[in-house]
Nucleic acid binder design. Structure first.
Lengths: 186, 186
DNA sequence: GTCTATATTAAGATAGAC
DNA sequence: GTCTATCTTAATATAGAC
């Protein structure tokens, strides 16, 4: 039987926003109930393991979003630089142009469920591979491609922290705008 | 009258470690009491405003540490590249070679006291200025110097997130090792 | 200044009606 | 499936002895 009042996708979206903005410990069941429009008892029906269970389920959700919106566009078709630009648009959406924190960073502090941390850790590795692959396709050798992939992730994560903390989105926007060149240029 | 059982510096150190590792919401008064060796009631004597008050007081503590260990060495005397290397040693200490999260990142999620966030935000700006100054002193023009300073902070913060999340300190160590060149080279 | 003991409030979790 | 009501546990905070 399908869930009625609130569908799974909407619930997942609301829960993810709370966890990424407030962290695991900072998000209460009351917060989740208010945001989703369900009572706490109903949340226990959907997630018998309570908050931990709910948070754990964000892993597959985020991984799926990344695969669909970032990894797939990077695989083609189209010119590598164009594909990266497509990914950058999705990236800006996911991070609210630099205003929203990284979900993995937010949940990697002690308290979050370890299963989630490892799921997201794997997503990071897949992201690195995805970047390295398109850099190689652009004609860079394997070593350089891996280095550029690491640099790309450092630019994204570093600029994200600084943008959020200083309240100035420019660092993030500049950093992601430079990604096509970083990942393709000789 | 001075505090007897536990001196201010030791208490500050323990509290800072808890807040940076677990975040504001993830750190309870019981955690603080256990770590410091004081009972909760004694913590209220020292910080009448409770946990929020305690956390707020980490701001000046961190700012002072940064001034003493990072900004001062950067000012001289000595060759710019040598001064940066001195700072890098302190940086590695402060961040546990990439294992410890950034205190500002950890506390900028919702829940931490806003006074702390703004105090640490100012520390960031001072850090940027400090980097830009030594880059100019190394012969870079003002625009380039500012850009390198921003890049240096992005490298530090980005590599820190990735090192912590992947459990591999190499990214952080490589990033800070590259700082002397980044901030001085034409 | 620090303690033990206790009050107060909020969080996590369950029972049972509809 | 979702609700209201309630239970249990843990957190914040205070009172008063030493």
């Amino acid at each position: 039987m399908a869930h009625s009042r609130v569908n799974d996708a909407a619930l997942a979206e609301k829960a993810l926003e709370l966890f990424r903005q407030q962290g695991y410990e900072g998000t209460s069941l009351n917060d989740l109930a208010t945001a989703t429009g369900l009572e706490k008892a109903s949340l226990y029906y959907r997630f018998p393991g309570g908050k931990k269970d709910n948070c754990r389920c964000r892993g597959p959700h985020v991984v799926h979003w990344f695969e669909e919106n970032m990894f797939e566009p990077l695989k083609g078709p189209g010119l590598p630089a164009d594909r990266i630009r497509t990914m950058v648009r999705k990236l800006r959406l996911f991070y609210g142009d630099g205003a929203k924190p990284c979900i993995l960073d937010a949940l990697s502090l002690r308290g979050g469920p370890p299963e989630l941390a490892s799921a997201l850790g794997n997503a990071y590795k897949a992201w690195l591979d995805s970047f390295a692959a398109i850099a190689r396709e652009s004609g860079l050798n394997a070593r350089t491609a891996e280095d550029r992939a690491r640099q790309a992730l450092i630019q994204i994560e570093g600029s994200l922290v600084l943008s959020r903390v200083t309240g100035n989105r420019k660092m993030f926007l500049d950093a992601v705008a430079a990604l096509p060149k970083l990942l393709t240029q000789q």
